[in-house]
Amino acid sequence: ATPAKRYAMVIDTRKCVGCHACSVSCKTENDVPLGETRSWVEYIEKGDFPEVRRSFLPRLCNQCEKPQCVSVCPTGATYKRKEDGIVVIDSNVCIGCKYCVQACPYGMRFINPTTGAADKCDFCLHRVENGLVPACVNTCQGKARIFGDLNDPDSVVSKAVRANALTVLRPEMGTGPMVFYIDADHTDARDAARLGTYVRIETNRRQQERV
């Protein structure tokens, strides 16, 4: 048997230009219906004129090490694959109860209107299984997305993990995300009131509030 893999992604936000090539490639790759998104890019604009900044935060399923979505699933439709750690949904088993949708602390899940099953980013399993990088990684304009196997010390992702200061989203949730960020802006809309400055978060999707 081949040794187990642990797929992970590092997103170097310094290289992200907010171009949405990833969002769109994800839609075409996975036929994601309008209104739902597996992958999106948030714009975080803040400051006061003329000291204004805008940074970009690409979002996708974290393929958590301790995925809440898996532990709440009553049918076992969603599970974390032993062979590579990807959290997947079996759309033939899922009943669409939306419990996992509620459970994901990152708002990554939705019910796909065509299948009636829960859906989310699966690291493009069908590509990865065939030795290709995910669609969003392949197209990434800034080459900001680095993908690979953390169990392989020579993989680009292992190297990136070793060489950089990393953060994950909402670490306090204890989910153990496998999507890591370099230089991410963790500013939240709620910080605006506290800081007394202008902060605008745009999610560029139907759910206009960040989840």
Partner: peptide, 18 residues
């Protein structure tokens, strides 16, 4: 797959139906 290891973005002109 080996290429994927070395190159973060490279699909070799291949794609698979999901």
């Amino acid at each position: 797959l080996k290429q994927a290891k070395a190159l973060p973005a490279w699909n070799g002109g291949k794609d698979f139906s999901h």
